[in-house]
């Protein structure tokens, strides 16, 4: 099967931007979650950033390798939105009263 130009363009977008958006949400939630569990913000941020780039690599490869491209896109976009929203809500609770 020869890859089509459209297929390549879509996977490039999904793997780079989709992956980025997903990690933006996941790291935010990770940081807020760890802070909620008592870790200092800077430490939580450092830990999540270390993991984020490794996860980026895995997501990138997964998007290119998967046979279920649409499902992958849905997971990335939904994950990005959901995790970001959860992070913001959690943050509101953590900073309430300050």
């Amino acid at each position: 099967m020869e890859p089509t130009a459209l297929g390549i363009a879509l996977r490039t977008l999904a793997s780079l931007l989709g992956g980025y958006a997903f990690l933006w949400g996941a790291s935010s939630l990770g940081i807020a979650g760890l802070v909620a569990l008592g870790m200092a913000y800077e430490e939580a941020r450092t830990l999540c950033m270390l993991l984020a780039f490794l996860l980026y690599l895995i997501i990138f490869l997964w998007v290119w390798a998967t046979h279920h491209f649409v499902r992958a896109c849905v997971i990335l976009v939904a994950g990005a939105g959901l995790f970001s929203a959860m992070a913001v809500v959690l943050q509101q609770q953590l900073t309430a009263g300050v």
């Binding site: 990690l23 790291s27 935010s28 941020r45 950033m49 984020a52 970001s84 992070a87 300050v98």
Partner: peptide
Amino acid sequence: GLVIFAGIYFPLGETMLEPLAKQHQVLE
């Protein structure tokens, strides 16, 4: 190399998580 500039690539503390980052500065 990516980790060193993580703050530029994922500027969470200056954007979405700014309230949390600010609170941290005070606590710290």
